[in-house]
Design a protein around this nucleic acid. Sequence first.
DNA 1: GTAGTTGTCCTACAAAGTCGGAATTGGGTC
DNA 2: GACCCAATTCCGACTTTGTAGGACAACTAC
Lengths: 109, 109
Amino acid sequence: MGKEGYLGEFEQVLLLTIMRLDDDAYGVRIMSEVEERIGRRVSRGSVYVTLDRMEEKGWITSETAPAGSGRGGRPRRVVRVTPEGVEALTKSREALLTLWDGLEHALGG
Amino acid sequence: MGKEGYLGEFEQVLLLTIMRLDDDAYGVRIMSEVEERIGRRVSRGSVYVTLDRMEEKGWITSETAPAGSGRGGRPRRVVRVTPEGVEALTKSREALLTLWDGLEHALGG
DNA sequence: GTAGTTGTCCTACAAAGTCGGAATTGGGTC
DNA sequence: GACCCAATTCCGACTTTGTAGGACAACTAC
């Protein structure tokens, strides 16, 4: 999407979830956190490709962490939201807040 | 997108703008209202195509209104958000509010 | 009728979202 | 150290959304 680069619907969900998880933000964990927090079922694939795309766009960075404590598992790719990502999130939030203004009643708010 | 049917980013912007414009919600008017309200430039095409798709999905309905008062112009297609549309909007808002909860500070809120 | 205005529609393409199987990595067990 | 198992990421194929602007239609006023 044009140079502007608005946050996609799902991208926003992931970005917000990543911020919340902080040091613990990696693929499958993000996936289950989304499900638990807003009751939305997402597939592994959608999470990973979206992560890839957001990294390309510079909204997140990632680094490999040496696998979790418990049993096996391949190394985790832990991600983190960049300042650009936070900015996109902030703008998106402001726009939404502006659009909702005055309509809260109709939207059950 | 599966049966669930989450609101796309742009769909949400349009739906909210349509609610605000009420009886005055038709293509070009919606376009300029979005631009004025959140400073986002959108093309005619994206508005109309998105309107078509949302009507197919039952989030809005439309009816033809016999052209505006003053000068010329072809008849307007005035749209209105359906209860299903309002519901989708409400759910989306709730999810976002939940995801933002506790992160407001980081998001300039 | 010819021109100017307002508004919608169409076509084509780019970007985002979705899914589940396949492959990879490391721990445990004997 | 050969196997099996759990945890995670990666891959490929496809559907839905988002974007853009030219073409076209309807109405007013001369």
